[in-house]
Amino acid sequence: MKTNTMNAAEFTSQGHWRTLAACAACMLALMGCHPDMWNQPRFAALQKSGFFTDGRASRDPVPGTIQYDGQRRPWKSAVFEGISGGQLTVPSIMDDTFYTGRQGEGFKADNYFPVSAELLARGRERYDVTCTPCHGFAGDGFGVVTRRGFPNPPSFHIDRLREVEDGYLFDVMTNGFGRMYSYAARVTPEDRWAIAAYIRALQFSQYAPLDTVPADVKEAILNPQPVVENPADSSAAHH
């Protein structure tokens, strides 16, 4: 009996310590004290590294590196696979026209891809993302940044730009022009071709020959009806 007994104060204090220890363990577990698994010894994209003198973990290709043509990257968007006739990868790096917009001495006159609704839809999406800050949604050169002090780029709806080749538009996106920086690192070549196709559609939307308009729409354009501002007023006029 004597061996099993203990002081009451001793009993409670020991109980407390056990509870406390258990709780502390639980809390530490909850707080996740495993930084070794959390941050594993490998580098993520754009991470800092003390190993290289420039402090970057991501490395540039060695100067003079030539892209190997054997394994080309796949299309990033299935759109182009369909448009280019089920081709699974982007064209060979040897295909200058695809990567530069040039053909022979000058620029490729028409688009690299056959123009389709899918190509235009892709071009519109990428144009809206990439080009509208300066060129505006209508291509008139009044994008949002021009209101913040960026000089207006030329409108697409001028004769000079209506007459240039698709390959020229591609070349400007690729190499930049005047104050416009190159978009080669931000927009893939296939998307630049799609944007060129969409710019053509934008130009057409503001400069369509009357003969290409369907007959009923043509009639409405040639004999415009007076615009009725308020339907309530017009019904009152009938009485």
Partner: peptide, 21 residues
């Protein structure tokens, strides 16, 4: 009384610590 208080305060402590966690 001490034992009861001990049990009660242990229960209280566990709940408080759980809430804090």
């Amino acid at each position: 009384v001490l034992v009861r208080a001990g049990i009660a305060s242990s229960v209280l402590l566990v709940s408080v610590l759980t809430l804090v966690a």
